[in-house]
């Protein structure tokens, strides 16, 4: 909200959307919903305890490839940290506080 007496500025993204009649595709929205679900499941699994990819996959019901891909995306965005490694060659990951 702007200063008292001023109108809230319309975002340029909304001006473009309205001007060209743009909207995200149904597939993109569905993908985003699925991504949020995956994110919530992974974050919940590693919130309190560091886990390996197979452990997270088992707990969330997701496949290991999906878990690892998102985990590395979150890792590179600074949301997840590695905490040690198992003898089997799996790193353990935990949600950063």
């Amino acid at each position: 909200m702007g200063a008292k007496g001023t109108r809230k500025r319309k975002l340029t993204v909304h001006i473009l959307r309205d001007r060209l009649g743009l909207k995200p595709s149904k597939e993109l929205i569905e993908t985003l919903k699925k991504q949020n679900e995956i994110k919530n499941k992974i974050f919940k699994a590693i919130k309190d305890e560091a886990k390996t990819v197979p452990e997270i996959a088992k707990e969330t019901g997701l496949d290991t490839t999906t878990v690892f891909w998102y985990l590395m995306t979150f890792y590179r965005h600074g949301l997840v940290e590695e905490v040690g490694k198992t003898d089997e060659g799996y790193f353990k990951y935990k949600l950063k506080r």
């Binding site: 390996t52 990819v53 197979p54 996959a57 290991t64 490839t65 878990v67 690892f68 891909w69 985990l71 590395m72 890792y75 590179r76 590695e82 089997e88 060659g89 799996y90 790193f91």
Partner: peptide
């Protein structure tokens, strides 16, 4: 690199 180490995309295990 995209990962924290050289790891397999299948499950994040160190390849041997």
């Amino acid at each position: 690199r995209p990962y924290n180490a050289v790891l397999r995309p299948f499950d994040g295990k160190e390849p041997m």
